[in-house]
Nucleic acid binder design. Structure first.
Length: 492
RNA sequence: GGGCGCGUAGCUCAAUUGGCAGAGCAAGGGACUCUUAAUCCCUAGGUUCGGGGUUCGACUCCCCGCGCGCUCACCA
């Protein structure tokens, strides 16, 4: 039983203390990283190591103990690297021998010894000392199967990271993805900024917010659903190229590609339009894929995805015409479009307006088919209240979405900078809200005041980091790429 | 929120129509100076998610609750 095992470990902890040792010391002295030990001695064979014996100090977590009576092996792990320790009991001093008997799998130890190679060729530190530098009071998950239980993996992610190599790999890819993205944007003279998470009014995306209470001011506040309206204020203020990487929060359902809090990269570039953002996002994702994965292609759910070259673009109208046979621009009002959809034997669903019906048709019939990187352009103005109207067709806007693996990865437009048009769009949103659209954008007078001071023509882009990492790691679920996905509390 | 499924030892999993809750790893004791899923012998380990019900008897069947998964809805 675990209680017995915990007690046994606690007793060994007490025994360690009884020897006068501190089982949780603050400082342990210099040690060489295990990867460094490997780097330095891996090329030498047993004879060469014996000819020039060198002492080294190492530290790490004990992942396995194999005892042969007078000879004991530890597998030590530190920062992703492993190294074997050996102890020849007859050669140890009494204190070291006593401490050795009090080490459990999971403990952190520090040892010193001479580097040698066993008969099986394993690089090993022949330890002559051992010191427990942090005690582990629980048994680790089983070494062969690892931790399988999904709930336990998320609730105790540290165990998942410890025993499941895949969890560690995803965490590394995610970190490197963000690093590569930063270096790309920094290289293009973008300035990294931070805007409020806690907002008196939310905006920038069609989404339901989380609400909270600011007690000191006795006011309702919202967790941001997007950074957009604040980043634009910075462009208005002359910070011509800005980006932010941060959490957005949307009070909506969860799915394998939706989590209530997720990480978004948004960037804005003055004197640019959506076509410039197309070039930017393509170069940025290619930079990330090359830097993190090496190369231009990867496999996602058994399909090869090629990130190299120039990505194709298709308008929403053309894509829908191809997949459904319906020309949405030739059906300019809701009733006509709905009739066409029914004629084709398709399900028009519950969509209440022309724009939302277009959106639904796209989600149902086009989105899942966009496996290779593809730009989809020219969205209905109704769905894009912050984007500049197309000069060719006032029903459409200068916007694109990037799809990969059937998922929207990025969204960009030529930003609407005409304050009169922006006010009109907010008014339309207000009507939509009155008609029951819970995701409509609220009117933001302060944002309009900023726009009235003049915003240069600007291209803006938002990219979902979690989704990009899903694609890069071939993850089955967005939770796999989040270190701590939301879990209901146990036994509530 | 709806539907379907799952919850057994610290971990990974068994348990026949409803009939004595088991194994491996981990743990405790012992043997072993080259293992790396070490091996061999012995031992211990359970509120079968929680509560209620049916029954001579419930891990198993029924009801309620909790948690998790899949899926639909909502939603970028």
């Amino acid at each position: 039983m675990s209680e017995a095992e915990r007690r046994a470990r606690a007793e060994r902890l007490a025994a360690l203390r009884a020897t006068g040792a501190d089982p949780y010391p603050a400082s342990i002295g210099a040690v060489m990283p295990l990867a460094g030990v490997r780097e330095r001695w891996d090329a030498l064979d047993a004879a060469a190591l014996e000819a020039t014996p060198e002492r080294v100090a190492v530290a790490g977590r004990v992942m396995a103990i194999r005892s042969f009576g007078k000879l004991v092996f530890f597998t030590l792990r530190e920062n992703g690297a492993t190294l074997q320790l050996s102890f020849r009991k007859p050669e140890l001093d009494p204190e070291t021998l006593a401490t050795l008997g009090l080490v459990d799998v999971g403990d952190f130890v520090r040892s010193e010894g001479v580097v040698w190679r066993t008969r099986t060729g394993e690089l090993t530190v022949g330890a002559t000392s051992v010191r427990v530098i942090a005690k582990c009071l629980h048994p680790l998950p089983e070494k062969w199967h690892g931790l399988v239980d999904v709930e336990a993996r998320y609730r105790q992610r540290y165990l998942d990271l410890l025993v499941n190599e895949e969890a560690r790999r995803i965490a590394l890819v995610r970190s490197r993805t963000v690093t590569a993205m930063r270096s790309f944007l920094d290289g293009r003279d973008f300035l990294e900024v931070e805007t409020p998470v806690l907002q008196p009014l939310y905006g920038g995306a069609a989404a339901r917010p989380f609400t909270s209470r600011f007690e000191a001011y006795d006011q309702t506040v919202y967790l941001r659903v997007s950074d957009e309206l604040y980043l634009k204020r910075l462009v208005i203020g002359g910070l011509d190229r800005v980006y932010e990487i941060g959490r957005d929060f949307r009070n909506e359902g969860v799915s394998r590609k939706h989590n209530p809090e997720f990480t978004m990269m948004e960037c804005y570039q003055a004197y640019a339009d959506y076509e410039d953002m197309m070039e930017l996002v393509q170069a940025m994702v290619q930079h990330v894929v090359a830097g993190v994965m090496g190369g231009t292609r990867l496999v996602f759910r058994e399909q090869e995805i090629e990130f190299g070259g120039v990505w194709p673009r298709v308008s929403i109208r053309d894509a829908l015409l191809e997949k459904t046979g319906v020309d949405v621009l030739a059906a300019p009002d809701f009733a006509t479009l709905r009739a066409r959809v029914l004629e084709k034997g398709l399900d028009p669903g519950e969509a209440p307006t022309w724009g939302q019906l277009v959106d639904q048709l796209f989600s149902d019939h086009v989105e899942p088919t966009l496996v290779q990187p593809t730009f989809v352009t020219n969205h209905p103005v109704e769905l894009s209240p912050l984007a500049k109207r197309s000069t060719e067709d006032p029903r459409l806007v200068e916007r694109f979405e990037l799809f990969v693996a059937g998922m929207e990865l990025a969204n960009a437009f030529s930003e609407l900078n005409d304050p009169a048009d922006q006010r009109a769009r907010f008014d339309e949103q207000r009507l939509a809200a009155a008609a029951g659209d819970q995701d409509a954008h609220p009117l933001d007078e302060e944002f309009l005041l900023a726009l009235e001071h003049g915003m240069p023509p600007t291209g803006g882009l938002g990219l979902g980091i979690d989704r990009l990492v899903i694609v890069l790691t071939d993850a089955q679920h967005i939770r796999e790429v989040l270190l701590f996905p939301y879990m209901r509390p146990e036994g509530a």
